[in-house]
Design a protein around this nucleic acid. Structure first.
Lengths: 112, 112
DNA sequence: TTCATAAGCAACCTCCAGGTTGCATATTAC
DNA sequence: GTAATATGCAACCTGGAGGTTGCTTATGAA
């Protein structure tokens, strides 16, 4: 009985948004999403930051399972976890529609 | 010619997610979205934090236009800015579908 | 087998986000 | 008019996020 994934509580969703809320990390996400799985070296390429800084950011995102990594030879390959992205997306969708509903309610109250 | 609102660059979208990425702020968003426009006092109600702390959070969100406020008598009423929520939502939607596309491309490459 | 590449580990630094307290000011209620 | 309510302003404190440097280790290439 696969339930339709209820909206998570704000306390649970916040860390997800926090992970996305750093420009460096969001660029990493964008790069992965554009090119597919990439090694740290590839991800750090062109950045003004150190490779170690990039690694730290990746670990932050891994901790909340926004990305995952696997070792391949001497490299470590990083992938996006699309289910988490989707989870965040749905949260915002719910917020927006709930807000609309609240406004509608108030509007009707005034009209009465 | 109202264009369909292109996906913003990571650098522009990150502050939006950062604003959502704090548990206190996300709770404020949730509360507004559930009940409609609310005063600071209402928003601070039940929280363990100071009213001033709440005010600071609201200002953070106002700065990036995730919420707006208007004065009404001695109160200040805070509302959600649903277009910004929608903007963030679309960003995530784009990330997810781009990732899927990248995987598909790679998959087809392997099969060839 | 030796050199170059890719990554991991750890210690350290700095600044500012997220809080607080204390006081001032504007509105509203009685 | 006076007390209570709702908010604004400012100074201050503190931990941890986001960086760096330096060194080590594993793997691949020639």
């Amino acid at each position: 009985m696969l339930r339709p994934a209820a909206r998570p509580a704000p306390g649970r969703a916040a860390p997800l948004f926090a992970a996305l809320g750093d420009a460096t990390r969001l660029k990493l996400v964008a790069r992965m999403s554009a090119r597919g799985p990439l090694s740290i070296a590839r991800l750090a390429e062109g950045s003004s930051l150190t490779r170690q800084a990039i690694t730290k950011h990746l670990k932050v995102m891994e901790e909340i399972r926004l990305v995952r990594s696997r070792r391949r030879g001497r490299e470590r390959i990083w992938s996006l976890e699309p289910r988490r992205v989707e989870e965040a997306r749905r949260y915002l969708e719910a917020v927006a529609s709930q807000w609309d509903a609240a406004l509608d309610r108030l509007q009707r109250l005034v009209e009465k």
